[in-house]
Design a protein around this nucleic acid. Structure first.
Length: 205
DNA sequence: AAGTGCTCCAACCGCTGTGCC
DNA sequence: CGGCACAGCGGTTGGAGCACT
């Protein structure tokens, strides 16, 4: 099978964005294969899907990542590795592509420099003046300061993450015949520790 | 002001997973 | 069970814009 070589590539125009939005409003997400015909968009389905997921979807948060998001991404990456879609699923409004780009352009360097300094994982590094809040020792402490009535959300967040971790662990055990389980045990042990820490910080329910 | 290098992000590519026939 | 089509994912690239000289 060959893709028609007349399919457009490269940056999207506002007109194409509108066509894609209209298509999703009418037909819903999915069925990307019908896009070129139904939406009159001269783009391959894959490109349309990506554009929708990474840019046009409602509730996508744009702009700088907050200190809490940094902290969360670092923790989740430590636990889950480069499973960007899983990480993104835990950070509302952020896409896997955003997080991946952010990691590659900023956080990986931050991590590298911090490991050189042998400082704590969650200490703030005032690389960017926008990322203020450095008076707090860690963003978890900052969250304690800020979140107030959201404590329950945060605790349930970690609880669901732990459950998801257990699910992944089980799945891997089946699929990989326990090959990776030893490593993942370390991951999920840390995950459990994090969860316990959250409970210590916010009190158990 | 012009040239060069760097950073960041949108988009592409290729691989894997999944469902259907 | 194997093959096919499609969806989803992570790695990589290209280029626009910015910083520096």
């Amino acid at each position: 099978m060959s893709r028609p070589n007349s399919m457009r590539k490269g940056s999207w125009t506002e007109e194409e964005n509108q066509l894609l939005r209209k298509y999703v409003e009418t037909y819903g997400e999915g069925n990307w294969k019908h896009i070129p015909k139904k939406a009159g968009l001269n783009r391959c389905p894959k490109s349309c899907r990506l554009r929708w997921l990474n840019y046009l979807r409602p509730n996508i948060k744009r702009g700088d990542f907050g200190v809490d998001e940094d902290d969360l991404i670092i923790r989740l990456h430590k636990l889950l590795g480069n499973r960007w879609s899983l990480i993104a699923g835990r950070i509302p409004g952020r896409t896997a592509n955003d997080i991946k780009n952010y990691w590659n352009s900023y956080l990986s360097k931050k991590m590298a420099s911090e490991s050189n300094n042998t400082t704590s994982l969650v200490k703030q590094s005032p690389v960017n003046s926008d990322r203020s809040g450095a008076e707090f020792e860690s963003s978890s402490e900052r969250k304690m300061e800020e979140c107030g009535e959201d404590e329950e959300d945060i605790t349930s967040f970690w609880r669901s993450l732990l459950l998801e971790g257990e699910y992944i662990e089980t799945k891997l055990a089946i699929e990989n015949n326990e090959r990776k389980i030893e490593d993942d045990h370390v991951f999920f042990q840390e995950l459990g520790d994090s969860f316990q820490n959250m409970e210590i910080m916010f009190g158990s329910e």
